[in-house]
């Protein structure tokens, strides 16, 4: 086996892994706090990428004809600033979603909550298509992606963008951990995710705390979308495929374990690139298959995922 080629493939896979991990983290944060699966996570993220796009490029008419987007004032922001603004907008949108759509339902059934998020998925997706058109838009790269822009390690090329994405993801993660461990809000959030009713009894305001949770999750989603918008081209369905992988990653690692989401993203990203490369039976067309099969197999052995807490039924 050609070691350099293997290393090269791993390096290439790392970029996608970071994106999957990031979106999976968003899913996990929401699942931990609210106990629901946010199907709209990908679309909400794409929406923030569009916001970054508007902040960068100024008002953009639709691909055909004038659109409502023409009414939004655009400021030529620098790329990092635009992404930062988009992440903030995403966080606000996430918090608003929790307040407006999830909290009023209270402890509704899984089906109802899934419906709300599916409804949100459809609505966001098509509104984006209405606003910005369905054609792909060019989103500028935050890191240099040119021909010579890479480190060379043992003959394999590690792109600056891959390193950059991981640096951003890890620093956001460290920020999140610090927030959870050392602030009062973080403490409240941890209490709510362990037991909402007990947290409420000791005086934690559950509602606003969950709002923070949604804001954090949407922030991670927004990061994922803004960082990947350059390589997959910005279009309304951009994150739909990524979302399936992120679901797989989150399930693989355990839906309530951030550590699991990170690792799950890595596993999915690597298996997506490596398995089609070394198993002749599976072409690139089917690259989604091994990841999903891996997910099912792991769920069979550990029904709560690799790091998820096993559920114990109380009668």
């Amino acid at each position: 086996m050609d070691l350099v080629l293997l290393l090269q493939r791993i390096f290439d896979a790392l970029f996608n892994s970071a994106i999957y991990s990031s979106l999976a983290l968003a899913l996990v944060i929401i699942f931990r706090s609210t106990g629901l699966l946010n199907f709209a996570q990908g679309e909400m993220a794409t929406f923030t990428a569009y916001i970054a796009f508007v902040l960068l490029a100024g008002p953009q008419p639709r691909l055909t004809g004038g659109g409502l987007a023409g009414l939004i004032p655009g400021v030529p922001f620098s790329i990092p600033l635009a992404i930062f603004g988009a992440v903030l907008c995403g966080m606000a949108a996430g918090a608003m979603t929790e307040r407006a759509l999830i909290r009023p339902l209270g402890g509704a059934s899984d089906v109802a909550l899934v419906n709300i998020t599916i409804g949100l998925l459809l609505a966001t997706n098509s509104l984006m298509a209405q606003w910005w058109g369905t054609g792909p838009r060019f989103f500028p790269a935050i890191f240099p992606t040119g021909a010579g822009q890479h480190f060379t390690i043992l003959g394999a090329r590690l792109r600056y963008s891959t390193v950059g994405v991981w640096v951003i993801l890890l620093s956001a993660l460290i920020l999140l951990v610090l927030l959870l461990r050392h602030t009062k809000t973080g403490l409240a959030f941890r209490a709510v995710s362990i037991s909402p009713s007990n947290a409420e009894l000791v005086g934690v305001r559950v509602g606003p705390t969950l709002m923070y949770g949604w804001a954090m999750a949407s922030g991670f989603g927004a990061l994922a979308a803004c960082l990947s918008a350059n390589s997959v081209l910005l279009e309304p369905n951009m994150m739909l495929r990524v979302l399936v992988y992120a679901f797989a990653a989150a399930t693989l690692g355990g839906l309530d374990s951030p550590k699991g989401a990170l690792l799950g993203g890595l596993i999915i990203g690597l298996s997506q690139t490596l398995i089609p490369a070394y198993v002749p039976f599976i072409g690139f067309e089917l690259s989604v298959l091994p990841a999903l099969v891996a997910m099912v197999v792991i769920l069979l052995i550990r029904p709560a995922g690799l790091f998820g807490t096993q559920r114990i039924e109380r009668i």
Binding site: L101, N115, I116, I118, G119, L120, L121, L122, A123, T124, N125, S126, L127, A129, Q130, T134, P236
Partner: peptide
Amino acid sequence: PLAKAIFGLILI
């Protein structure tokens, strides 16, 4: 694309 948005709204 608006049809899907209306569906989403109806669902919610």
